[in-house]
Design a protein around this nucleic acid. Structure first.
Lengths: 223, 223
DNA sequence: TCAGATAGGTGACAAATGTAACTTGCCAGT
DNA sequence: ACTGGCAAGTTACATTTGTCACCTATCTGA
């Protein structure tokens, strides 16, 4: 039995969701809330497995709500239901860890399916919303022109150089990096010079941009 | 009639795709290719609407192929078919502008549906792959701790300040920014000082990181 | 064993960056 | 007409950053 909580401010929709999901095999609606604040209180009592949540709500909007829920109950899966593809919200909701993003026009069958997929650790995006996600990625591709690094060059970087790139990507000054690695500041500067020439960049700011864009900031350095 | 081209190195799969899609209403297979190079030649002759493409291929891999196709024929839609979720490829394919990313285990019905959606300007992600995309987004969220900006502060930024943040996020020096906006370099520096204190950051490197992480670099400044 | 590479370090310098205090010109509101 | 506020600019200064030439120790392969 998957325990489901519905969070939705419009009564009509809230009720119709309840009716739709009522006595579907494997699904049990354990409660409903009208806004974010109520939802959070309920969650603590009822501990649902999956939450269906509207994104536009009074009091506390869905995005904030997701953020809070995910902090305290990272295991609870959240499916965002939205009337129309609210540009603004999509990415923030995804960023905060929603597992699904669906339009309300979805069929009962699809919704049930979605709940099961999400419960099982999967994720879902509505085709209409997928378009936005895809656009986002191609924007990232365009962003490449901003800091352009010869692809082969990255292989030439030593372990220390990679670590320094990460630190720069976290916004550290030379002094701070000096403390992390146990080199002298002069050495750090020399390393940075070498990084700049290898990657054909001009200054630490460009290194930082490269680090963030390429995701280096978040990787472990093994080499 | 949607004109479809199949690009797939394994003969069995290539043929089975052909058979699957053979005489489906609204779909016409206009050709098949075994690798990227062949595909590009064919595209010029046949001008398909939608391409079904394997991502792992000899000679020229799918990612490169997508990049080239999208450069010269941006209107052609591409659906990537993959045997298994090849981590490496997913993001690069999306970045280069693929409109769909599906596992080969898909049913005929779903595939036909997918082709139509993509042809109509939509996009698709397989649930299994959606998981990766969602993970990617939550990674971005985790990255927030690196450069931590008071959320309220962002509202205080003026239009000029926002534009300067974008330029810094593209790795420009003060001189370069001076040329873009028509202010004196001193003024730019004053603006940056003001940005730093509003966002409570220390130097332009941190501004750049913030710009990239928050996606500001890619947005239009309207205000 | 000896030449050469490699990791780390120094010091001096030029350029870029950030800060602060002050000026100027303009506009809105009273 | 006066005043406060704001956008833009100027100047001077302290700090940080990047470059370069050169030093030292350690190790490695012929």
């Amino acid at each position: 039995m998957i325990k489901v909580l519905i969070v939705e401010d419009q009564e009509i929709i809230r009720q119709s969701l309840e009716i739709m999901l009522h006595n579907k095999a494997g699904i049990q609606i354990i409660g409903t809330a009208e806004n974010g604040k109520q939802a959070i209180k309920l969650i603590k009592k009822l501990v649902p497995d999956v939450i269906l949540m509207d994104i536009r709500m009074p009091e506390m909007d869905g995005v904030q709500c997701i953020e809070i829920i995910k902090e305290t109950f990272p295991k609870i899966k959240i499916i965002v239901l939205t009337t129309f593809d609210d540009d603004e919200y999509v990415f923030n909701a995804l960023k905060n860890g929603a597992s699904g993003y669906l339009l309300k026009g979805i069929s009962v069958k699809e919704l049930v399916e979605a709940i099961k997929i999400v419960y099982g650790g999967g994720a879902l995006i509505n085709p209409n919303i997928a378009v936005k996600v895809f656009k986002f990625f191609s924007q990232m591709a365009n962003a490449d022109y901003i800091v352009n690094v010869a692809k082969g060059a990255v292989k030439d970087l030593s372990k220390n150089e990679l670590r320094i790139i990460q630190f720069i990507g976290m916004g550290m000054s030379n002094k701070e990096i000096t403390e992390k690695l146990k080199f002298s500041e002069g050495t750090i500067r020399n390393y940075i010079s070498s990084i700049l020439s290898k990657l054909n960049l001009r200054d630490r700011t460009q290194i930082a941009i490269y680090a963030v864009q390429s995701g280096l900031t978040m990787k472990e350095v093994s080499n």
